[in-house]
Design a binder for these strands. Structure first.
Length: 535
RNA sequence: GCGGGUGUAGCUCAAUGGUAGAGCGCUAGCCUUCCAAGCUAGUUAUGCGGGUUCGAUUCCCGUCACCCGCUCCA
C-alpha cells in the first residue's frame, strides 16, 4: 500500500511515545529507581497537567454543565467522591468477591491457559468396564462436532457423542460413577469422583496434562485497623461505580433529584490484572470517570442510545479523530453479569498503536439494568425503590442504570497517541498536536534574546497570562530550541517578544501545527489565545 | 502464568575478563533580532542479587523491569 502523506491514522511507534513521555515528563515507570513495579506508572509534571485537563473537562461536561437531554432541557447529574475502601459487603453484593476470580487451568503440554468454565468435558454415560484407563476428552466451548469426532477416531476411542454428558470442567466434581461404571449426574455421597488424570486436553493426545484450577484474585486486599486478621480484611475498589449505588438512597432522599438523573464520580480503581500490558493501557492502578444514569426501565433503551452517541461526540470534542474511534456492540457471550438482561453494552474504542489496525476499549456504555440496586437491597436490607408521583397514577419502581464508564488513564494514552505527529522537517522531528483546550501548557512567552529590555516586556505579559491559563516563561538558550521543546510538549502558542516589540508594542504568535507566525498587538495577545482555546 | 527478545549517562549508540567513550540533551556563563547555530566550563551510566575469577559491565545462574506472541481483561 502506498502512503502519500502522514495523517492522523498513521500508526505511531509505542517505543517512541513511551520514550517521549519519559523524556518530557509525562509518564514515568513507578518507583523506577528500585527497578520499577509491574503494572504501575507515575504521572510526571506534564502528564498530570494533561490528565487533570481531561478529568476537569469530563467533570465540567457531566456535572457542571450536563448535556441537553432529548426533551431540550439540561440533564441533572450530581457529583460524588466515595471512599476507595468500603465495607467488604459492598463487594459481596456487587459480585466482585467470588464471582469474578475466574478459575484458570493450564495445559502442561501445550502451555495454553484456559478458563475452567470454558472447557467442556465429554463424560461418557458409561465407562468401558474392561478399560479403566479410558481417556475422557475435553474441548474448548464451541468446538465443532466434526473436529471432536475426528479426534475420537484418531485416538481410536469407542465413544459416541450422543452418549456423552457435556459439562463444564468447573462442574466435574458434581458428577460420579458407580461401581458398575454408570454415570451419576449429581454425585451422591460414596460414589467415585471422575478421575482428573483421565482428562485429555484440547490439542493434546495423551491424558493428564491439565493443571488444577487456580483462582485468580483480581481485587487487591488490605487490612483496616492495626491488627491484621480475617475480620479486618478490606478491598481496594475495582470500580468507582459501586459508590454511586451505595449512595443512591442518600442522594435520592436528600438532594431533591428526580429520576432520571445521574451520579458522577472520578477516581482511582485497582485491579490485580493477570498481565498488565501496553504502557498505561492496562495497569493495576488506574483512574475511571463513571456516571450512573438512573432511569425508568421503559426508558433504558432511549437513554442507552443517547449516552452512547453523546459520549462518542465528547471524545471527538477533546481532540480524538473520528476515524480512530468506533462503537462496538458487545456480543451476548461477552456481556458482563449485570448487563445480560439489558439492552446491551457498547464500547467506545480507540485505535491504539498496539491494537492497530484494530481498536481497544476507551469507554464502555452499559445497561446495568437494576442488577446493582437489587443486589444492594438484598445484601443491605434497605429498600431502594423510587416513588414517582409526577405521573398519574403514581408508581413505584427500581430504576435501571445506564453507565458510561470511561477510562481516564486510557483517555490520556489515547490523547497522547492521537497527538503524536511525526514531522521530519522540524528540528524536533515530531510534535504533539493536542487540542489546545487540553494541552498541558497553553502558551509560552519567549523573549527572543535575553537582553535589550525584552525580558522585562515578556515577563509583564507572562505575569498577566499565567493568571488566566497555564503559561510558561522561558528565556534560556536560542529561540529554535525553545520552539522545538514546546513542539514536543504540545504547546499550541509560542509568543515571542522581539526587538521590534519596544517600538511597535506587538509580538509574534507562533502556531505549533503550522509553524506560521502572526504579529499581534501586545494588549490583544491574551484575548487572542483565550479565544483560540475556546474553539 | 508460558515462550521469545531487550537491559551501558536523560536520549541515541560505542567499547572491554584489567581506568567505561562519543554525539545530543541538561546546568552555568559568553554570544545571538525567529526555528535544536557558535564558544567555555560543568553534569550523569553498565537494572538488581549471587557465582566463577587475582579481577566481571563482559562468562554462568537467579531475579526485576520493558517489548512481542499466547493467555487473561468483571
Amino acid at each position: 500500500m502506498e502512503q502519500e502523506k502522514m495523517n492522523t491514522t498513521d500508526k505511531i511507534s509505542m517505543d517512541d511515545l513511551v520514550a517521549l513521555c519519559k523524556r518530557r515528563g509525562f509518564i514515568f515507570p513507578a518507583s523506577e529507581i528500585y527497578g520499577g513495579i509491574n503494572g504501575f506508572w507515575d504521572f510526571g509534571p506534564l502528564g498530570i497537567l494533561l490528565k487533570n485537563n481531561l478529568r476537569d473537562r469530563w467533570w465540567n461536561d457531566m456535572v457542571i454543565t450536563p448535556p441537553i437531554g432529548p426533551n431540550g432541557e439540561p440533564l441533572k447529574i450530581v457529583g460524588l467522591d466515595s471512599s476507595i475502601i468500603q465495607n467488604p459487603k459492598v463487594w459481596e453484593a456487587s459480585g466482585h468477591v467470588g464471582g469474578f476470580s475466574d478459575p484458570m487451568v493450564d495445559c502442561r503440554e501445550t502451555k495454553k491457559r484456559y478458563r475452567a468454565d470454558h472447557l467442556i468435558v465429554y463424560l461418557p454415560n458409561e465407562l468401558e468396564q474392561e478399560n479403566q484407563d479410558q481417556s475422557i476428552l475435553v474441548f474448548v466451548e464451541g468446538t465443532p462436532k466434526q473436529e471432536i469426532e475426528k479426534k475420537i477416531k484418531k485416538l481410536k476411542l469407542s465413544l459416541s457423542l450422543s452418549q456423552c454428558e457435556c459439562i463444564p470442567l468447573t462442574d466435574l466434581d458434581k458428577y460420579g460413577y458407580t461401581e458398575d461404571y454408570g454415570l451419576w449426574l449429581l454425585r451422591p455421597n460414596g460414589t467415585k469422583k471422575v478421575d482428573r488424570s483421565r482428562l485429555v486436553a484440547p490439542d493434546v493426545k495423551k491424558p493428564d496434562t491439565l493443571t488444577e484450577a487456580r483462582q485468580f484474585n483480581l481485587m487487591f486486599e488490605s487490612s483496616a485497623g492495626a491488627v491484621k486478621d480475617a475480620a479486618s480484611k478490606v478491598y481496594l475498589r475495582p470500580e468507582t461505580a459501586q459508590g454511586c449505588f451505595t449512595n443512591y438512597k442518600n442522594i435520592v432522599d436528600n438532594m431533591r433529584v428526580r429520576v432520571p438523573f445521574g451520579i458522577a464520580q472520578i477516581g482511582k480503581a485497582f485491579r490485580n490484572e493477570v498481565t498488565p500490558r501496553n504502557f498505561i493501557y492496562r495497569s493495576r492502578e488506574f483512574e475511571q470517570m463513571e456516571m450512573e444514569w438512573f432511569c425508568h426501565p421503559d426508558e433504558a433503551r432511549l437513554w442507552f442510545d443517547f449516552w452512547k452517541d453523546e459520549r462518542k461526540k465528547w471524545w471527538e470534542a477533546v481532540g480524538v479523530s473520528t476515524e480512530n474511534l468506533q462503537l462496538r456492540q458487545h456480543d451476548q457471550d461477552e456481556l458482563s453479569h449485570y448487563a445480560k438482561a439489558g439492552v446491551g453494552t457498547v464500547d467506545i474504542e480507540y485505535r491504539f498503536p498496539f491494537t492497530w489496525p484494530g481498536f481497544g476499549e476507551l469507554e464502555g456504555v452499559a445497561h446495568r439494568c437494576d442488577f446493582d440496586l437489587i443486589q444492594h437491597e438484598k445484601h443491605s436490607g434497605k429498600k431502594m425503590e423510587y416513588f414517582d408521583d409526577s405521573v398519574q397514577p403514581p408508581r413505584r419502581f427500581l430504576p435501571h442504570v445506564i453507565e458510561p464508564a470511561a477510562g481516564l488513564t486510557r483517555g490520556v494514552l489515547a490523547l497522547l497517541a492521537e497527538a503524536y505527529t511525526a514531522d521530519p522537517s522540524r528540528p524536533s522531528k515530531m510534535y504533539l498536536k493536542f487540542n489546545p483546550s487540553i494541552a498541558p501548557v497553553k502558551a509560552a512567552v519567549l523573549p527572543l534574546v535575553n537582553k535589550n529590555g525584552l525580558p522585562e516586556i515578556a515577563q509583564k505579559l507572562y505575569y498577566s497570562m499565567r493568571t488566566k491559563f497555564m503559561t510558561e516563561y522561558d528565556a534560556k538558550s536560542n529561540i529554535g530550541k525553545r520552539y522545538a521543546r514546546h513542539d514536543e510538549i504540545g504547546t499550541p502558542f509560542c509568543i515571542t517578544v522581539d526587538n521590534d516589540t519596544p517600538k511597535d508594542q506587538a509580538v509574534t504568535i507562533r502556531f505549533r501545527d503550522t509553524m506560521a507566525q502572526e504579529r499581534v498587538a501586545l494588549d490583544k495577545v491574551e484575548g487572542f489565545v483565550q479565544k483560540a482555546l475556546k474553539e
